[in-house]
């Protein structure tokens, strides 16, 4: 009779997003995350595949320098032109050489031309994960001090709705897009949270 709990868990996890949505409308009730480690880890893997992808990770760097990578670049390399986060820590570059000197609101359609999206800049220094392990990134995403003071639902919404994040799936000619889509990643984060948000 071991199959019943498994079926029950599967059913609960299947409907967990709906349950959470329902619970969020009822301010008097808080839905407890349903711990389903196996499913949760499977959902996290989808999320990690996006976060660790060069289109996202190359600008979530710790050492002030964004990265370049892709079929035309060979191994990942430091962005040319001494481009840096900026002495003010803003992530928008330095005087005389802001990100916006070359990166505009749309992708250049010329191969090797600069990609573009609204508000182009490096991720804040506390939100760096370039080169980190899946477990490290996972723990970071759950930590409000390192995720922009967001709940996981807010992280999901940020991934779905932010124009600069959305660029990862539409990176312009010659660049491999991040896997899946913004909506699929949003759903994966919610499903991961509903499964207890386990980390590897």
């Amino acid at each position: 009779m071991t199959s019943r709990p498994i079926i029950l868990a599967a059913l609960v996890s299947l409907f967990a997003p709906a349950l959470l949505t329902s619970a969020s409308a009822q301010t008097s009730q808080q839905a407890e995350p349903v711990v389903d480690r196996e499913r949760g880890l499977a959902e996290w893997e989808k999320v990690h595949a996006v976060f660790a992808h060069p289109r996202c990770a190359n600008c979530h760097v710790e050492d002030e320098h964004p990265r370049w990578s892709g079929p035309h670049y060979g191994e990942t390399r430091v962005h040319a032109f001494n481009v840096q986060r900026g002495d003010d820590g803003s992530g928008f570059g330095n005087a005389g050489l802001r990100c916006s000197t070359c990166h505009f609101e749309t992708n250049s359609q010329v191969l090797h031309g600069p990609p573009g999206a609204e508000n182009w800049h490096l991720a804040p220094v506390e939100m760096v994960w370039f080169g980190k392990t899946s477990a490290e990134i996972c723990a970071q995403i759950k930590d409000p001090e390192r995720n922009g003071d967001r709940s996981l639902r807010e992280v999901a919404t940020h991934v779905r709705d932010d124009a600069l994040v959305a660029w990862g799936w539409d990176p312009g000619p010659g660049r491999e897009p991040a896997p899946g889509s913004a909506e699929e990643t949003y759903q994966a984060i919610l499903a991961w949270e509903a499964s207890g948000a386990p980390c590897p």
Binding site: F81, N82, V83, Q84, D87, N94, A95, G96, L97, T101, C102
Partner: peptide, 8 residues
Amino acid sequence: DIDKAMAG
């Protein structure tokens, strides 16, 4: 400052 501004 000059190095950072002029490198491009």
